[in-house]
C-alpha cells in the first residue's frame, strides 16, 4: 500500500511538470504586451519595460523561462502579482475561503444527495423515487448561474433569509447559500448515482444471501448493500471535492466570494500571467493529492482492488 502511494507520488511529477508547462506556454502565447496598462493612461517608460522583462526573464527563450520559474516555485516562491503582492500569501488566504465553501458544498452534496439516492433506491418506482428523478434532472438541466442568481434574488434579496453576498472573510453562515448553489449539480448526480448503484446491489445475489441469513432489513441494506454501493460513490465524491477545491468561478463570481476561482478569473482578465500559472500549479497539486486519496480509499472499500 505505501509502495503504491509512493509510486503514485512519483507519477505525479511528470503530470505536474506537463500541466504547469502547458499553462505557462499558453499564458506566454497570449497576445498583447504584458506591460500594457501597467503605467496608467500612458505607455510605460522604456526603463520600466526593460526592468519588467528582466525580472520575469521575458528575454529568455520559453523553455529557459519556464525552468527559471520552476526553480522559484520549488523554493516556495510563486512570484508576485502585478500589484506587487506575493501570490503565495494571497493564494493561502483565498484557498482557506475556497476550502470552506467546498466543505459546505460537499456537506450538502453528501448528506442530501446520498439520502435522496438511498430513499429513491428503496422505493424504486414509487413517488419518492420519481420525485428524486425529476427534481435532480431539473437541477442538472438548469445552469448554475441561473440557480445562483435566482436563489440570490429570492432567498437573499427578497426574503432576506441569507446574505446576498459574502464579506471579505466569510463566515460559515454566509457561505450556506453559495455552498448549496455550488454543490447542487453534484448533489443531483450523486443522488442518481447512489440510486442506481444501491438499486442494482439490492437485487444482487449476496443481498439475497444476507436476507437468507435472517438479518434485519436495516442490516441487509445498511451494511451489505450500502457498503458495495459506496465504491463508485466515494470515487465520485473524492474527485468532486478535488474539483471544488479548484474554486468555482461562477458561484464565487455571483456571491462575490473571495476565493481561488475569483482570483484566477480576475488574473486571466488582467493578463496577470504570474498569478494564473502560480494558482493553477497549486490547484493541480491539490487535485492530484485528492485523486490519490480517493484511489487509496478505493482499495480499502473494495478488497478486490489490490495496490500491491
Amino acid at each position: 500500500m505505501s509502495k503504491y502511494a509512493l509510486r503514485r507520488l512519483i507519477q505525479m511529477i511528470p503530470v505536474v511538470l506537463g500541466v504547469t508547462f502547458l499553462i505557462y506556454a499558453l499564458v506566454y502565447a497570449l497576445p498583447g504586451d504584458p506591460t500594457a496598462g501597467k503605467c496608467g493612461e500612458r505607455p510605460c517608460s522604456p526603463a520600466y519595460v526593460a526592468e519588467f522583462r528582466k525580472t520575469y526573464n521575458l528575454n529568455d527563450p520559453l523553455p529557459l523561462q519556464y525552468v527559471k520559474y520552476l526553480g522559484n516555485v520549488v523554493q516556495g516562491d510563486l512570484g508576485e502579482s502585478q500589484y506587487g503582492q506575493p501570490i503565495r500569501d494571497e493564494l493561502a488566504e483565498r484557498f482557506g475561503t475556497t476550502f470552506k465553501l467546498g466543505v459546505v458544498a460537499l456537506v450538502f452534496e453528501v448528506v442530501v444527495g446520498l439520502l435522496a439516492g438511498v430513499l429513491a433506491a428503496l422505493r424504486r418506482g414509487g413517488f419518492l423515487d420519481n420525485l428524486v428523478l425529476v427534481s435532480t434532472l431539473f437541477v442538472i438541466a438548469i445552469p448554475v448561474f441561473v440557480t445562483g442568481r435566482a436563489l440570490q434574488l429570492y432567498l437573499g434579496v427578497r426574503a432576506g433569509l441569507f446574505p446576498a453576498t459574502v464579506s471579505f472573510e466569510p463566515t460559515w453562515f454566509e457561505l450556506l447559500l453559495p455552498g448549496f448553489v455550488l454543490g447542487s449539480t453534484s448533489l443531483a448526480y450523486l443522488a442518481r448515482l447512489m440510486r442506481t448503484n444501491l438499486g442494482d446491489n439490492l437485487s444482487a445475489d449476496y443481498v439475497r444471501t444476507a436476507h437468507a441469513k435472517g438479518l434485519s432489513t436495516r442490516r441487509v441494506v445498511g451494511v451489505h448493500a450500502l457498503r458495495n454501493s459506496m465504491i463508485p460513490v466515494v470515487t465520485f465524491i473524492g474527485y468532486d471535492f478535488g474539483a471544488l477545491l479548484g474554486g468555482a468561478i461562477i458561484t464565487e463570481g455571483i456571491f462575490n466570494v473571495p476565493g481561488v476561482g475569483q482570483y484566477v478569473f480576475r488574473a486571466i482578465n488582467d493578463r496577470d500571467g504570474q498569478v494564473v500559472v502560480g494558482t493553477v500549479t497549486a490547484l493541480v497539486l491539490v487535485y492530484l493529492v485528492a485523486n490519490l486519496v480517493v484511489d487509496l480509499l478505493y482499495a480499502y472499500l473494495d478488497p478486490r482492488i489490490s495496490h500491491d
Binding site: Y206, R227, N228
Partner: peptide, 10 residues
C-alpha cells in the same frame, strides 16, 4: 453461484 452469493467486500 457462491461467488455472487457471498458479499465481495467482507
Amino acid at each position: 453461484d457462491a461467488l455472487s452469493s457471498l458479499n465481495p467486500v467482507f
